[in-house]
C-alpha cells in the first residue's frame, strides 16, 4: 500500500511512523511536507503526532490551514483512508473531519505512559485485524488528550458505532481509574460516520516492535493495509479503485 506521512513544522512522530510503515511493515511511504498542495497517488495518509506550529492558539488549530490540508480534505471526501495520531487527531478535529475536540488533560499534566485501550468495534478499516473487546497496550504522550463533544454528538457517536477505542485497564474494564486524561466516555479513538477517517490519541507507531515493549500498534496499520487490499467495504473498495486508476 502507498502511504503518505505528512510533516508539519513541529511534527515529531513522522520519522517513527515512516520507519514503522517502511522499515518494519515493508510498505511504500511518501514523505509529504505541509506546503505540498497535492498528495500524489496514495492509499492512505497519516497525520502524525507532535506539536505542529508549537501548539499555538489550540493544538492543531494552525495546522488545519496548512496548504496540504486541502488535499487531505479532498482525499478524505473521496473516501481515502486518513489516520491522525495524537496531534494528528487534534488536527482532524480542528479541521472538522472528525467530531469533537481535544482539550487539556483533566489533571493538567503531560502524560507519557503505557496505556490500555479496548477495541470497541472491529468492523472498521482501522481495527479489522483486532478482536472485539481486545485490549491493546499502546503508549500515550500528550498534554491535551481529553476528548470532549456535546451530548448530542456523543450520542451520535455511540449509535453510529464511531467510538473505536476506549481507555481501559489491563483486563479491559473501562473505569474512572483507567481513564488517564478525563476523556468523555473514556474515548481514545473515533472514526467519522463514513468510516474512512480515524483519530486516536495513543501512538501505535511506538508500539510496533518488541524491542521497545510491544507490537500491538502494528494491528492498527495492518488493519488499514488489509482494508486497502481486499475489502468488501464499499467505501474502501471505491477508494482503492479510484487511487489505482490515478488522478
Amino acid at each position: 500500500m502507498r502511504w503518505g506521512v505528512v510533516t508539519f513544522p513541529g511534527s515529531n512522530d513522522d520519522a517513527q511512523t515512516a520507519f514503522v510503515l517502511e522499515g518494519l511493515l515493508g510498505e511504500k511511504v511518501a514523505r509529504l511536507w505541509h506546503k505540498d498542495t497535492t498528495l500524489g497517488a496514495l492509499d492512505a495518509v497519516v497525520l502524525p503526532g507532535g506539536f505542529s506550529y508549537g501548539d499555538y492558539l489550540r493544538c492543531g488549530a494552525m495546522a488545519r490551514f496548512s496548504p496540504i490540508m486541502s488535499a487531505v480534505e479532498g482525499f478524505a471526501a473521496d473516501g481515502g483512508l486518513v489516520i491522525g495520531v495524537c496531534n494528528g487527531f487534534q488536527i482532524l478535529c480542528e479541521a472538522g473531519l472528525l467530531p469533537g475536540a481535544l482539550v487539556r488533560n483533566r489533571d493538567l499534566r503531560f502524560l507519557c505512559q503505557r496505556t490500555h485501550v479496548r477495541v470497541e468495534d472491529t468492523d472498521t478499516a482501522f481495527t479489522n485485524r483486532c478482536r472485539r473487546g481486545e485490549v491493546l497496550d499502546i503508549p500515550i504522550k500528550h498534554g491535551e488528550g481529553c476528548y470532549v463533544a456535546d451530548a448530542a454528538t456523543l450520542d451520535a457517536l455511540e449509535t453510529g458505532r464511531q467510538i473505536v477505542l476506549r481507555y481501559c485497564d489491563a483486563e479491559g474494564r473501562v473505569t474512572a481509574g483507567s481513564n488517564p486524561n478525563g476523556s468523555l466516555g473514556s474515548i481514545a479513538g473515533v472514526r467519522n460516520a463514513r468510516g474512512n477517517v480515524f483519530g486516536m490519541m495513543p501512538h501505535p507507531e511506538y508500539a510496533a516492535e518488541w524491542l521497545v515493549g510491544g507490537e500491538d500498534g502494528r494491528k492498527i496499520f495492518l488493519s488499514m493495509v488489509a482494508s486497502g487490499g481486499v475489502s468488501s467495504d464499499a467505501v474502501v473498495s471505491a477508494t482503492r479503485s479510484k487511487v489505482v486508476s490515478g488522478p
Binding site: V103, C146, D150, G182
Partner: peptide, 10 residues
C-alpha cells in the same frame, strides 16, 4: 459552559 476547564479550576 459545561466544558471541563481544569486550568480555571486550578
Amino acid at each position: 459552559q459545561g466544558v471541563l476547564d481544569p486550568q480555571g479550576k486550578a
